[in-house]
């Protein structure tokens, strides 16, 4: 039995049909073609599928697609404004905060949620906030620096 879901993704109204036990991650990737969110584990342990649900950071693998009915979803695909990258996206490139890049969309979405709540975080706050976003390439050093650089830029703006 399928259900129809009407929701908002990155500001756009979208409808899709899905199975009731389908995750929001599968719907984003499979139904809507938004493959920026990645499945690293499917159990909420890696954060690669991070999106926001009504502004709240969540793992989209731990949300059912049907729960998105009438809600607002934001994904990495909605971070840049046209050709202008979000300061976090720019900072991640400038500070070499990505290697393979599989964790990057989730980390960017998570870091954006952090800076909206805490514009001037300590390194420790950044590290604890991002503890649910596994990165196996970088050792996190350059990620923390990039988040801080973006935060500084956003505070100046």
């Amino acid at each position: 039995m399928s259900v129809t879901v009407s929701t908002t993704v990155n500001g756009d109204s979208v409808d899709f049909v899905c199975a009731p036990d389908e995750t929001l991650l599968d719907a984003l990737r499979g139904r809507l073609g938004l493959t920026g969110a990645k499945e690293g584990c499917g159990t909420g342990d890696c954060g690669a599928c991070s999106v926001t649900l009504n502004g709240r950071l969540v793992c989209s693998c731990l949300v059912l697609a049907v729960e998105a009915e009438g809600q607002e979803i934001a994904t990495v695909e909605g971070m840049a404004a046209g050709e202008t990258l979000h300061p976090l996206q720019r900072a991640f490139i400038d500070h070499a905060a990505l290697q393979c890049g599989i964790c990057t969309p989730g980390i960017l979405v998570a870091a954006k949620a952090l800076l909206e709540k805490t514009p001037d975080p300590s390194d420790e706050e950044v590290r604890y906030w991002l503890a649910g976003n596994l990165c196996r390439c970088t050792g996190y050093d350059k990620i923390v620096r990039a988040v801080q650089a973006a935060a500084a830029e956003m505070r100046r703006a």
Partner: peptide
């Protein structure tokens, strides 16, 4: 870089 920070880069499952 840009492909990877915008979610455009295509990995194995994409």
């Amino acid at each position: 870089g840009v492909d990877k920070v915008t979610g455009r880069a295509l990995y194995g499952a994409d």
